[in-house]
Design a protein around this nucleic acid. Structure first.
Lengths: 117, 117
DNA sequence: CGAGCATATACCGGCATCGGCATATTCGTC
DNA sequence: GACGAATATGCCGATGCCGGTATATGCTCG
């Protein structure tokens, strides 16, 4: 029942927003802080939660930790991420997150590997 | 963020099995007991949890409570139920549940409204 | 009305989650 | 080696979930 692990990860708003953003591009913790407007601890802990359960992978780039979706995802995760994308279209919070991400991208002060997709 | 409510409902194995079965046909509590092989209290509580959150509806037929998916489901629930159906195809537990359901149907001792779909 | 079946609820203990505060770790720079 | 930036972790209290035992409710039938 790997599905359970997926749904457990999906059932918190902060984690859902994180996964939604990562569907667009890899990001580091400080980007999440800025886009989601949440304290560092909170972000960091949710990322740890997701990492422990294989929903995201992390890679160090100097001072930054760059988080992304795993390259190889099993069918269940892939299907649910797709479903999430579909469901999220109309929600104002997720739309706002996307706008904030776009704004960050124009700044172009990103560490290697993040924000370039 | 209605999505959160959906994922909270999806993140327990018993509830997931219940929803999967209800995607096939309405059922009453004692059918769940038999198919899932779980105690009555457990089933009843998970059904209450799902009912309070609008994932299922209940209707009384004499002594029985017949549970089913709501006729009108919003897009998010519909999408996720579909996704669940897709993800579940290969899982042995869910397949076993379907076999147990089929066996129940042949008995044809169901109360009105359940098991007839 | 009393018995019995089907289902729901109250209460409890154990455990996970969540968020916050403080502190630790890791890396780059001077 | 000290410092600062970026991130992670330990500890805590509050809350919610989960499953079990016992008990209550609703319905039917004799």
């Amino acid at each position: 029942m790997d599905l359970i692990r997926i749904y457990q990860c999906f059932c918190d708003p902060t984690r859902l927003r994180i996964l939604h953003l990562l569907s667009q591009t890899p990001l580091c913790v400080c980007h999440f802080q800025e886009i989601l407007d949440e304290p560092q601890v909170k972000i960091s802990k949710h990322l740890a939660y997701l990492r422990e359960r294989g929903m995201v992978v992390a890679e160090r780039d100097q001072n930054w930790m760059i988080y992304s979706l795993p390259k190889k995802r099993d069918a269940e995760l892939q299907a649910n991420l797709k479903c999430l994308q579909d469901c999220v279209q109309t929600d104002s919070i997720f739309k706002r997150d996307l706008r904030a991400l776009a704004k960050l991208r124009t700044k172009a002060d990103a560490p290697d590997g993040a924000l370039l997709a």
